[in-house]
Design a protein around this nucleic acid. Sequence first.
DNA 1: TAGCAGCGCCAC
DNA 2: AAACGTGGCGCTGCTA
Length: 582
Amino acid sequence: MEERTAAFRLITGPEGLREAARALAGARRVGLDIEATGLSPLDARMRLLQLAAGGETFVVDVFEVKDLSPLREALEGGPLKVLHNAKYDYSFLLAQHGIRLSPLFDTMLAAQLLDGGEQGPSYSLEAVAGRYLQETVDKTARREDWSKELSREQLEYAARDAAILLPLHERLQELLEREGLGPVSRIEFGAVPAIAEMELAGIRLDVRRWRELERVVRRRRDEAARRLESHFPQPEGVLPLEGLGPRLNLNSPQQIMEAFRSIGIELPDTRMWTLLTVDHPAARDLLEYRELQKKLGTYLETYEGFVHPKTGRIHASFLQCRVPTGRLACTNPNVQQIPHEDEFRRCFVAGEGNVLVIADYSQIELRILAEVSGDPGFVEAFRRGEDLHRVTAATMFGVPKEEVTKEQRSAAKRINFGLAYGRGPRSLAAQLGTDEERARRLIDEYFATYGRVQRYLNETANRALKEGALRTLSGRLRKFGRTRGLSSAERGALKREAMNYPIQGTSADIAKLALIFIHSELRDLDARLINCIHDEFVVECAEEQAEEAASRVRSAMVRAGERLLKRVPVEVEVAVSREWRK
DNA sequence: TAGCAGCGCCAC
DNA sequence: AAACGTGGCGCTGCTA
């Protein structure tokens, strides 16, 4: 049955839904919001669908109207759908009604882009509406129970959330265009479906292999612990019951420092870097213990808890606009930080009858540096398809390319990667295991060869200090809050951040474009994205479509890269495997 | 008991 | 004195 008020129209039956569909069909844009009984589309149930268009707001009770197909045409195309945190609504509509919202405008992402990476206090709808409209929005109803009989107040709040999206869109759209953020906002909005579907697809963990690895690593960890403890004097007054006495906690840096002191070794801290310089077997044993303990605690003992009971897969969350550089962040769990060793990655497998297509950009950050600096040495090396590290080594050390030694190439590689992070001579010296003077000379020689790179990095750092903001090739904005009255340490840190931003940020631009293109290329295949690790994409697909999927993923990624890189070619490496390894 | 800072380390 | 950019997260040890 239907109810009318001035504010909204409650829809509980198919006739009302058809009327709503007609209203949407004629609209240019629709404010859209949902209410659900929880956060996960795999566990919670969608309760309300609110649609604001053409001066009307429809509130659909999805418990009553179970079939939303009359709305499909308007939701999967046609008018612009304006949402706040679109990934949430997109996931529910896809998982529970098979509807893929398009096209999208996300007011949360818009607000985050406008802030240029300086995370505002909150990006809730009420906060954003409060900031950009002269209205206050009360969201007390948000925390209420959406599974029972709904109060008039709840329905009104729900309707208001959808309605307010329209004026908010108008304002944010205007600001995005004015700030030159139109192109990057279209990348972000376009990537929402790819990211939502990647989360829904999830990743399969071979639990048997994982448990076996856990046993092996635990045994190694226990051995390392025994060796480590044997270096230190036994605590006095050990109780007769073995193991109950006060024991050294190997996970406590504080206690470890004390233990080292007790054998005459004074440590400033217990970091890996520090421990590597300590000439005592206890330092080696501690490093080994730490590594194994990290792998047990962070991965082996916790990941099974993330396997969803309904899907048997791990559904991580990807955060689209949390990182100032534009990269994705990932949590619950962070599947972007799984150890790279084969013994770990081989536990992440394709489902029955499927394979994984693993594709990554080859040296994308260095290609971006070549592009933005325009350095002829860099650009030409990439154009000729040469091994850039070898070329760098040859020029730095003044030897023919064929005579470059392993050590020389490795040093060049470390400089190549390090300078994108604003690395200095001291830290380079430490990594190369040489003295600071030699490191400084290497850097000087490097910049003598690649003068445009040096000039670009300096100019970028200075521009950040002067203008307080930088942009990537897509126009993504990053503001640098305070640039005056900085200590020299703060100034140095800001300069390094600044030098890195256009590189890392443009890489993120390309990755998000690639997400859009890959998602769209795979639409008519039995294939889907399951992970994205900055410049690497993992797709799971039916075995017999592997070749086709691999070729489409590659061309989508190349197209994304070439959209932003004009002077330098883009290369992608693709592998097909049942396991996540190349 | 929950929340948080500091330390330390995994990824790119 | 400074030290390599972006994150998430486990553990300790403290506080409210």
